[in-house]
Amino acid sequence: MTTEVLFYHLMHQPLEDALPRLLLKCLERDWVVAVQAGNPERRDALNAHLWTFSDESFLPHGTQEDGYPEQQPIYLTAEGDNPNEAQVRFMVDRAQLADLTPYARVVYLFDGNDPEALGEARQTWKAVKAAGHALTYWQQTESGGWEKKA
């Protein structure tokens, strides 16, 4: 199965600003989502942030520690698990996933101001392309929107 893989190049706003907006769009489309952070500490920081990122919006989410992970519309993890049977998986903070095929869409968000993260994103792009997945590259605009570049 071919997975649609999107690369989002953060340039002008941090992950904490961009991720909630992308997750809201997923929920509007009734997509079940998993977000994989690079480590448990970052997962926990995102967990706290998603509760308070906006006074106008709410993102229902949880982690393994919250219980009932299979019922979470957005599941936060630092592992390769998928207990909520997500169709969409976000990869943040240089997290890596060996098998993309269980997902309809995988989204890599990477910090374009971090040379190491940029280099890893390029390597991931090459590997994902070689695996035959459909790739799209989006670059963040100054206003925080996204411009399709490839």
Rank of each mutant, 00 (worst) to 15 (best):
S143P: 00
E147C: 10
A131T: 02
V32N: 00
F90D: 03
A130H: 12
P102Y: 05
L22R: 11
T63F: 03
A117R: 06
R94V: 03
A150G: 15
L109G: 06
L100Y: 07
E28R: 13
D66P: 00
A98D: 12
A45K: 13
T52F: 09
P14H: 10
A121N: 03
E56D: 15
G62K: 06
A104W: 10
F58T: 08
A45L: 14
S54K: 05
A121E: 01
P14V: 08
V92N: 02
R94P: 00
A95D: 04
V106I: 00
E85P: 05
Y68S: 12
P102D: 01
E142T: 08
A117T: 04
Q71Y: 08
F58G: 05
W51K: 06
R89I: 07
W31A: 14
V88C: 12
T136Q: 15
F53A: 10
K25D: 13
C26V: 07
L46A: 07
Q139P: 03
N84W: 02
L135F: 02
Q13W: 12
S54V: 04
A104S: 15
T101K: 13
E147I: 07
A130E: 15
P69V: 00
E120A: 08
F7H: 11
Y8C: 12
P115E: 08
P115Y: 02
W31I: 05
A95I: 02
A18N: 08
A34Y: 07
N39P: 02
G132C: 11
E79K: 09
G62N: 01
T136R: 14
N82A: 01
S57T: 10
G80P: 01
F53I: 09
G80S: 10
K148A: 11
T124Y: 04
D30A: 11
E28K: 15
V5T: 09
A134I: 09
W125M: 01
S57V: 05
T136D: 12
R43W: 06
A150K: 15
F53R: 11
V106S: 05
V33F: 00
D93M: 04
D66Y: 01
M91C: 13
W138E: 13
T77D: 02
S143D: 14
A78G: 03
R89L: 10
D55I: 05
E70G: 09
L24H: 13
Y75G: 00
Y108H: 15
F90Q: 06
S143E: 15
G67W: 01
Y137L: 15
D81W: 01
A95T: 02
V33N: 05
G144T: 03
G144E: 04
R29I: 06
G144K: 07
A98V: 09
H133G: 08
H12P: 09
P115T: 04
V92A: 03
A86E: 05
H61C: 01
N39A: 14
L15P: 07
W51P: 04
A95R: 03
A37M: 06
Y75P: 00
L15H: 07
L100F: 10
N39M: 07
R21N: 08
Q87H: 08
E41L: 10
P20Y: 04
L50M: 11
I74L: 02
M91S: 13
L135V: 09
T2H: 11
E4P: 06
V92T: 07
Y137R: 14
V92D: 01
Q13T: 11
A131F: 06
H9R: 13
T77G: 04
D44V: 00
M11E: 15
G144D: 06
W146I: 01
